[in-house]
Nucleic acid binder design. Structure first.
Lengths: 356, 356
DNA sequence: TTGTAGGCGTTATCAT
DNA sequence: ATGATAACGCCTACAA
């Protein structure tokens, strides 16, 4: 029927401000739509002259493929999700930058969902209309409970970035939490410190990260047959921000525990604690040596600069994105679920004295 | 024709792991597809019993509307872009969190593109396939040149967040740069400081932000008939990170200029500078008072805590998202291009002595 | 108030 | 190596 011909096709012009489609390109190049599609998608068996004609028409019309139409047809959106608590926490901001860079290499876009440290926020990242926008999800849960683990078995690939080991059936890419916290604690023990406060310890609603890092702290003491002083163990009520670190070390100091070292479970806690120590007239590292965790950029420019555990964040981002893309593509993906632990190392700076 | 009936329709089952479509819902509810669409989109004139039947079928099948198909049909994706240099810079990370929150209120998704402080990165955010994924763009350019301004006149809405006033034809939502820098400088002058270094001053490839904030610094001196010492004016080669602040103040100190105050054009520069000052044995604020710009969370937990200019970031995010959504919807949008300057204020902390 | 018939721009199938 | 045609799932006319 004549009505099948589109209006701007009838007019025979390129349509002015209108956006060119494959039909327009095909008409200008004198080929079929399928051939244009083949050229656009790099299909190999195309005569060079044909390809040149098509490419000429494409650049003449300023044609760009309509990703929405491709998505509808192919069932893939070319986007992956990144669900993290908030970007204002440097660790997640830097992780997001690295995920975005790795995604660019893979040719996929990233849709970031802040989950706000809440269970509801995390469940919303898994369900809802957002799920239809992405082909897979990088998920860093901190508030979900073990009982929610079954929700992770979705009809599309999920790679967990956090430390919550919910299920051996799901891919995890994460850091050596136990080893990192143990190495941080051992650094202080090597320096002769014995009254080492720990900030971010697990309490009732413990997060996986907290449990694992505390285990590293505990192991370091146990290996040397030293006892833990419960007054030196501080947990935080509302997250691991700087303010929580300041409050936590204040509670330790007020208890009369007189710490000579601090292991903080992230850099923000360490920075807050260092601030509070210095405000109270204690010298870092002479009176109290401090070690953080995450090696965020913040840690380089405190005074003194902060000794911290580098968890291998770029490696985590790259491995996780590559793995997720393989799962989505279905090619080259390992048959078994992956548990990848990134390379870890302690970065010694001014908040701990030099080791001899 | 019989071939139009889909395979799983013939089978008459719900299709197991298959995803339900409007056709499935319509069949189960015994209504037409159009009616399902009406219910989903909140069309008012529907009989209550019909709506209930449809809603029942929707929940029974676990149906969710296919956003991709809706996008193809409607020509909108329901996503907006946010193009900023990098998330690792706290200002942009906190801005991104606030944009995401405002977008959630508006019911749109946000696609973040890091532009890496490069002209190519910024042009890529405007062109390329990414453009087809979003209905509008929040754009914070720092490297584009005035000659590129015409590229901003796209076939879809753009709201500029940066300070580059390229064209009066484009919506801008930004901060009071001149007033903020002037207020910061005047605070130091009020305290009796006269040798006030400025970090982040414009040089050849000047960014708009730098030019505007330097103008504020200049005005404060001019208003008091004081001269500028060029040795106190420091620009940075590679961005406004902490390391650049440390290098810039080092250059000032090495010139023998002996500053008693510092105005840094963002908090990262201020933190780097404060670090370098203290490493060299200078006391903040006694010997050198320091003021930053941006009121990032970083500024609260330096030692001393950092006096800074709060540029009204949450207001910027909210106003920009709301304006962009209005432009996209075409309803309630102002006829003229908007220039919105957010409320600004100086937050006094420990890096400047108390004013009497 | 509800139903029917395209078509949004792309890719897959099948044919040539 | 290339072409014709049918979906992908939804929404807008128009019809009833």
């Amino acid at each position: 029927m004549a009505t099948l011909v589109r209006a701007r096709g009838v007019a025979g012009t390129s349509g002015g401000g209108d956006v060119a489609t494959m039909v327009d390109v095909a008409r200008l190049a004198g080929v079929s739509v399928k051939t244009v599609s083949n050229v656009v998608n790099g299909y190999p068996h195309i005569r060079a002259t044909t390809r040149d004609r098509v490419l000429g028409a494409i650049s003449e019309l300023g044609y760009e493929v309509n990703i929405t139409a491709r998505s509808l047809r192919s069932g893939r959106t070319g986007m992956i999700g990144l669900a993290v608590p908030e970007l204002a926490q440097s660790y997640f901001a830097e992780l997001a930058d690295e995920v975005l860079a790795a995604a660019r290499v893979q040719g996929v876009e990233v849709l970031i969902s802040p989950t706000g440290y809440t269970r509801e926020g995390e469940l919303a990242a898994l369900a809802g209309p957002r799920r239809r926008l992405i082909d897979g999800l990088l998920f860093s849960p901190v508030a979900m409970e073990a009982a929610d683990a079954s929700l992770l078995e979705l009809d599309f690939p999920v790679v967990l970035l956090g430390e919550q080991i919910f299920s051996p059936a799901i891919d995890h890419v994460t850091m050596r939490n136990v080893e990192g916290a143990r190495a941080a604690t051992e650094l202080l023990l090597d320096l002769g410190r014995r009254r080492i406060a720990v900030l971010g310890a697990p309490h009732e609603n413990a997060r996986g990260t907290s449990i694992l890092r505390f285990e590293g702290y505990r192991q370091a003491f146990e290996a040397r047959h030293l006892d833990l002083d419960p007054r030196l163990v501080a947990w935080t009520d509302h997250g691991w921000h700087r303010v929580n670190g300041a409050q936590a070390i204040a509670a330790v100091l007020d208890s009369g525990a007189e710490p000579d070292g601090v292991v903080a479970f992230n850099d923000a806690l360490a920075i807050g604690a260092m601030h509070e120590l210095q405000v109270r007239g204690l010298r870092v590292p002479e009176d109290v040596a401090v070690v953080g965790f995450d090696d965020t950029d913040d840690a380089r420019y405190t005074l003194p600069s902060l000794t911290t555990v580098d968890p291998g964040r770029p490696e985590i981002a790259r491995v996780a994105v590559d793995l997720l893309c393989k799962r989505i593509g279905g090619e080259g993906a390992p048959a078994e679920p992956v548990l990848h632990l990134a390379q870890m190392r302690v970065v010694e700076r001014g908040s701990t004295p030099h080791r001899r």
